[in-house]
Nucleic acid binder design. Sequence first.
RNA 1: CGGGGCGUAGCGCAGUCUGGUAGCGCACUUGACUGGGGGUCAAGUGGUCGCAGGUUCAAAUCCUGCCGUCCCGACCA
Length: 564
Amino acid sequence: MRQSQLLIPTLKEAPAGAEIASHQLMLRAGLIRQVAAGLYTWLPLGLRVIRRIEAIIREEMDRSGAQEVLMPVVQPAELWQESGRWDKMGPELARLTDRHERSFCLGPTHEEIITDLFRREVHSYRQMPCNFYQIQTKFRDEVRPRFGVMRAREFTMKDAYSFAADQASFDATYREMHDCYSRILHRMQLDFRAVVADTGNIGGANSHEFHVLAESGEDTIAYASEGGYAANLERAAAAPPPPRPAPGEAMREVATPGMATIAQVAQFLEAPVGRCLKALAIRGEDGPILAILRGDHQLNAIKAQKLPGVKQPLEFASEAEIRAATGAGPGSIGPVGAQVPVFVDREAAAVADFVCGANRDGRHWVGVNWGRDLPLDETQVRDLRNVAAGDPAPNGQGELKFLKGIEVGHIFQLGDTYSQAMGATFLDREGKASVPIMGCYGMGVTRLVAAVIEQHHDAAGLRWPEALAPFQVHLIALNYAKSESVREAADGLLAELSAAGVETLLDDRAERPGVKFADADLLGLPQRVVIGERGLKQGCVEVRAGHGTDLEQVAPAEVKARFC
RNA sequence: CGGGGCGUAGCGCAGUCUGGUAGCGCACUUGACUGGGGGUCAAGUGGUCGCAGGUUCAAAUCCUGCCGUCCCGACCA
């Protein structure tokens, strides 16, 4: 194609408000333009990249045995009421009413629609396992869209839903999708990790996220320095602590006037922070719930949210609520004699001779021991904390380290959550009605564009992997407007390469060479041919076979062979 | 939703504190020169200063309200 006839509005400067590299470069290279917060128009170059990604995803999904369908963006409320999510979902579910006053939503995901399809159309174990996928527009009214298409409100997602007759069959599909995702990301030349993850409001038992590694990533991944363990920080666990030492001190109450924070208390009492236990008051269905952690540990909100009786979403109790329930302020509360439910992080449960608030302002206990001084039931002990870098890995191999990642895929083991709620059944081998085991598998297509750029750019601009580049070859015709020999050679190469199926972009604009080179570096096509009068006089053009390779002098007639 | 920043030409910004005819660079149009890394000269186009109301002889500038957008915390492909 001719660059003079494509809308590729490049920018010299990054627009204000674009923070991360991919967002800046997508704007500068003319891939996208913003319409409103979290809403984007994809320009010709950007759309071509989307199409490439979709093609790879389709190939690999088809290879894995999934079948492509296309479901509607607008979905009737009734189906969401059946699954229970009409009420469960907050304002991120965009709702609308039609002219007949019927309620609908813009689909943020399609479990309800696909489960409805299954219960209507699939009746026998003989039709299973089956796996349906689509590549389609999703809308989620995100609280905070950000980083361009990285977290947009409207975006393109590949989502797949599998139905299995038994657990073994489901497991096979889940493994296949895990492999399929790995193949897709490998083909895009992405450095990624598959990690154990939390299931969020999709529900189900287990899930794995696929993260593209990038400093700009919004998620933290904890991984074992040896062996294969990797998990989202939300879900990551360290190896269990060693058994609790025997008590060595007597319990006594001490005055800690004005000491509100763990750091202050530890310093005042000259006790290690790790031996001071902090009590966090979480809002529960019937008043505050105490979460006890070591002073040097951080509460994990996802884990805490799963404690019985915790009000959703997780919030901390106010000072007034804490005072009403314990008689003390937030800085002086503790598990000894607490009149509210208490849950103890397993690391905190393994500390002996600890310090904790005395439920009286300005007073703490020291030398406290579980069992001896206060009861500790095993059911109270949970993993409640964020792991820290350097913690022993749960697989017993090395220590935990952290990486930043962009979540581009998430696969879920749904179990029968949706099939049960929506009454989807099939007849099994014995002719009995049975509930299918479901999985769902999401991959963010438009987010992948940004993720690829985060890993594939340099100071000058984009550096597309060959599999994703909007065009394979960039013909840069210097002085195209005036030089007849350049024009002839350039037009000839464009025709020849295009006829051979090589997707080629010819810069035929009446721009000076500097502008063309700068734009070419910004667009970042992997292969480049520079056509200028100087070279043509020697009977050659300059070919760059890929990013970072040297220029070679090649006769125009030989160029095609280099790219086919 | 809480906290903070920003809204002036297509893009990047100055001007706002201290009210007095709206500016700079780039881009765009026309012409000339130039022609292998964002070139030079000349002449131009383009703005209800986010919106509404108020104060004032006079508002981009001061006041009030609203909207948009970006960033930081609770959600997710």
